[in-house]
Design a protein around this nucleic acid. Structure first.
Lengths: 342, 342
DNA sequence: CTCGGCCCTGAATGCGCTTTCAGTAAGCGC
DNA sequence: GCGCTTACTGAAAGCGCATTCAGGGCCGAG
């Protein structure tokens, strides 16, 4: 009952009356006389022995705890991706150290450093990066020695200058497809709820959307593009602002579903109906949007798979000389939040 | 560039031309001649040195990685609670090892064991327990030596026979309050979407609801109680089954919001309107239900706070001799998914 | 019956770090 | 200028485990 005193392998060995080495071997399933093995196992069981993972890692056994860094676990997007990560981790008997940065670059770098200290065999970075390129460089500086030391890094939905394996959503193609779908519905006047333009996710989605519009001879007035944080409230406020300015668009494209949800709420609070008055479309296809009224038209991303694939990338050796890049998703799912323009 | 080779403290010491002990002290902010300290710090910086957390933990320095076990991070309920946990963890420079059990008892116990092996100073268990009491005992057996070894355990929404600090939602009182609210609306015939009755969460919510109904002279027909997993699809299927049997209730109480969402979808697919044809109420107040159409009437739980408080409990010494128990939430929030019965 | 060979066991080493413990140089008063 | 305290520094021990290296028992073969 004395605090911080743990049963050690030596205790087990003594209880089983064998040497430390034998006890270690018995517990690790190496060849040992069955009778001795049983004695050791019984002693371990009886003493409620748990090997010290630190000692084990220090002594050279590989460490089974990987690191995952995301912006915010409570965001449905990250929660879904994290779900996939967890599934693969669980299947491989891995523990996951999950860190939420809350979009604080400093914190993200600190977490990488901690994960490096933990000698995590792999680190996953989930989500778009920082608005400031200096932070990206600082992150690179932290990642570099980790990679050089044999660490594995994989990212989801995030461009990196370093050679790391990536799982990337089809942001540009998906947004373009959405543009076509909305044009097909007859819309010609659009508003976009965007995020910080420095994020590649924003640049790609916005770019893909705008370019496709341009191809069709439709232009996107900069005044119809509202920036805001990638949150429900960010969407709500951006939409409200757009409304205050006098909305001329017949269709609003939010760069993330979460923003779209906020936008719908703002429209509703403004007495407008979706899709009768305004069509709304999102991006990501987080699980809940199916159950909204009306269900949200969006660009589908296989969120759970994004996490699964990233974990798999991080777990398998990259034998090639180039970074592996998986592009996924991007199909438009038309639901009831968008209507034909009559 | 040789794999798995890390810069060690010894390398730093050599580079700074000081002893290992001095290097350690300089890095840990103990009193060292400024000049030496600078040399050490510079060398560390230059070599991109990261202390080995394992060696450090082994050598006695306290370890700053706590464990959190939940059923599924991608469930909005857990995601929200985890968000609170992460916030407090971040504020305390703690790394969180998050494990998803996917409701597999064996896996949960394995995770506790791994966390024990990691010598995590604290373990948080989030979510209702197992249906089978034998698993609960097995978990106790795993937890016991951890507690004896000085480990701290806190649970959220989960009764335990062991003396551990707890954050408990006001399940019984909340459900009772919901019953009153629904009775006040004029409803007399109810259906309940429940989960496995062995879970205390289910027993408390169902019990509180039923008892309050009984007080008002209203009885709950067992045939109107449908069990199902605590998931969206569980709610959908349970509701569908109820509908297939011929629904007589005017109001459906789902024991979790996630189930309520499924129920609403089933009703809609069945051509029924909420709340015009059937009122629906939930429990938990996960963030999204505010944005549903109609917004869901539910029993509010301060989900993020649940996580925050649990983390705080786990981080502070329990000086008293009794386990600390925090009861939170339980207020009914009436929204548009429930209507007055005319 | 004896010797070589094999397999299993136990003693000892080292992983990287923190932390005594002892030692040395500097600083002070007389 | 001498002896003593004070303040750092450096050597070394040890955290708990995996693992290497010898040593010893047992077997079969000669």
């Amino acid at each position: 009952m004395q605090p911080r005193t743990h049963v050690t392998l030596e205790d087990v060995a003594r209880a089983a009356d064998v040497s430390l080495a034998t006890a270690s071997r018995a517990l690790n399933g190496m060849r040992v006389t069955p009778q001795l093995r049983d004695r050791v196992l019984a002693a371990a069981e009886q003493l409620a022995y748990t090997p010290n993972a630190h000692a084990r890692a220090l002594a050279g056994a590989s460490h089974r705890t990987v690191g995952v860094i995301c912006h915010d676990v409570s965001d449905p997007y990250f929660a879904a991706v994290a779900g996939g990560v967890m599934r693969i981790a669980g299947d491989n008997d891995l523990l996951v150290m999950l860190a939420s940065t809350f979009r604080d670059p400093e914190r993200e770098i600190a977490y990488v450093s901690m994960l490096r200290a933990e000698r995590a065999p792999a680190i996953l970075l989930i989500g778009s990066g920082f608005e400031d390129a200096r932070w990206e460089r600082a992150l690179d500086a932290e990642l570099k020695p980790y990679l050089d030391g044999g660490g594995r890094v994989a990212v989801v939905s995030r461009h990196r200058s370093l050679k790391v394996d990536s799982v990337l959503p089809e942001n540009r193609a998906g947004a373009a497809a959405m543009a076509r779908a909305l044009l097909d519905l007859g819309h010609r006047r659009f508003a976009v709820l965007a995020g910080p333009p420095a994020l590649t996710t924003v640049a790609d989605r916005l770019g893909g959307f705008r370019d496709e519009l341009t191809k069709a001879g439709v232009s996107l007035d900069p005044a119809d593009i509202m920036e805001g944080p990638f949150t429900r409230d960010g969407g709500y406020r951006a939409m409200t602002e757009l409304l205050a300015r006098g909305l001329t668009a017949t269709c609003v494209f939010a760069l993330t579903d979460v923003m779209a949800i906020g936008a719908c709420a703002a429209l509703r609070d403004h007495g407008l109906s979706v899709p009768d008055d305004v069509s709304v479309a999102g991006f990501d296809d987080i699980p809940i949007v199916r159950d909204l009224t009306p269900p949200l038209t969006t660009v589908a991303l296989p969120l759970q798979q994004l996490g699964e694939k990233a974990m798999e990338l991080a777990l398998t050796e990259n034998t090639g000389r180039r970074r592996r890049i998986l592009r996924m998703g991007g199909e438009v799912v038309v639901r009831a939040s968008t209507a034909k323009l009559n």
